[in-house]
Computed example of a mutant assay.
Amino acid sequence: MGEEEGALWPTTRPDQAPGFASTGEVVSAYAHRAEVPTDLWVSLLTGAWEQIDIMVYAAPFIFELIPRAADVIAEKCAAGCRVRIALADPDCEHVRERDELEQLGGTLPGRIRNAFTMLAGIAQVDGVRVGTHTVHLYNSWFRFDNQAIATPHLFRYRGYQHPALHLRRLSAFGIFETFAEQFMQVWDTVHPQEVSR
């Protein structure tokens, strides 16, 4: 019919208006990010054709899980996809604080620099924007069109130990849009980063 579900049956979708509780956007929840199946990461990346947004401290793991991630992203950009990746500035105070909170022993700056080397293959691709932020993140965000993985950050937990929510966007008033707006708030502060091999 060419109409969204909420327009045809508004009483079945209370999340179409602000202020209503709804869990419809939560596809699945994991106690730890490490428990998100690899095939889900792969399907999210390969299934995105319009927008990929990543906001993290380092997160080189996604390129380790998907060895051809850079090639896949380059192919998608050639087809019109927009990619924005925000990593933390390895020299900023918030990185030192996060390193201490996660008890990483001073290794977080090196992990961020390693992630930048992994981005070298796509940083110059038309449609890809890579930058650094100096924000104290309270969550990581991996958006693939209208689906995403959001990982709230917990005290003294490391990245792979944080819980993870697999979300799908159903409404302008849902939890997905709240996280997406948070990404935009951080992206507005991002400084473009030159990435070299």
Score class of each variant (00 low, 15 high):
residue 38 T to N: 14
residue 82 R to N: 10
residue 63 F to N: 15
residue 127 G to D: 04
residue 87 L to A: 06
residue 135 V to I: 05
residue 135 V to G: 06
residue 134 T to W: 07
residue 42 V to K: 08
residue 104 L to T: 04
residue 79 A to G: 14
residue 64 E to F: 12
residue 49 W to E: 13
residue 82 R to P: 09
residue 112 I to G: 00
residue 111 R to T: 06
residue 133 H to Y: 13
residue 91 D to T: 03
residue 112 I to M: 08
residue 43 S to M: 11
residue 127 G to P: 08
residue 67 P to Q: 15
residue 58 A to Y: 02
residue 99 D to I: 04
residue 122 I to W: 13
residue 110 G to R: 14
residue 113 R to L: 11
residue 53 D to K: 10
residue 77 C to V: 10
residue 65 L to N: 03
residue 110 G to M: 08
residue 105 G to D: 08
residue 50 E to H: 14
residue 80 G to P: 12
residue 36 V to N: 01
residue 97 E to K: 04
residue 84 R to Y: 05
residue 83 V to I: 13
residue 45 L to Q: 15
residue 45 L to W: 15
residue 62 I to F: 11
residue 105 G to I: 04
residue 60 P to Q: 12
residue 81 C to F: 09
residue 97 E to M: 00
residue 75 E to R: 15
residue 125 V to F: 14
residue 131 G to Y: 07
residue 126 D to N: 12
residue 102 E to G: 03
residue 74 A to F: 14
residue 46 T to L: 13
residue 59 A to K: 00
residue 100 E to G: 10
residue 45 L to F: 14
residue 76 K to R: 15
residue 75 E to D: 15
residue 91 D to L: 04
residue 69 A to Q: 11
residue 42 V to P: 02
residue 81 C to T: 12
residue 40 L to A: 09
residue 111 R to L: 02
residue 39 D to G: 00
residue 73 I to V: 12
residue 106 G to V: 08
residue 131 G to C: 11
residue 135 V to E: 02
residue 55 M to D: 01
residue 62 I to D: 14
residue 39 D to V: 06
residue 133 H to R: 12
residue 78 A to C: 06
residue 117 T to Q: 08
residue 80 G to L: 14
residue 40 L to Q: 01
residue 108 L to I: 05
residue 85 I to V: 14
residue 85 I to M: 02
residue 83 V to E: 10
residue 84 R to D: 05
residue 69 A to F: 00
residue 72 V to W: 15
residue 41 W to S: 01
residue 121 G to R: 01
residue 117 T to D: 02
residue 107 T to M: 07
residue 72 V to F: 09
residue 67 P to C: 14
residue 89 D to R: 03
residue 108 L to P: 01
residue 118 M to D: 05
residue 54 I to H: 10
residue 86 A to P: 01
residue 126 D to F: 08
residue 87 L to D: 02
residue 69 A to N: 09
residue 71 D to V: 02
residue 44 L to N: 05
residue 48 A to D: 14
residue 44 L to H: 03
residue 83 V to S: 05
residue 113 R to W: 15
residue 62 I to K: 13
residue 132 T to V: 07
residue 133 H to D: 10
residue 133 H to Q: 14
residue 45 L to K: 15
residue 124 Q to N: 13
residue 55 M to T: 04
residue 70 A to M: 03
residue 73 I to L: 11
residue 43 S to K: 13
residue 96 R to N: 03
residue 134 T to S: 00
residue 72 V to M: 10
residue 58 A to D: 04
residue 41 W to Y: 10
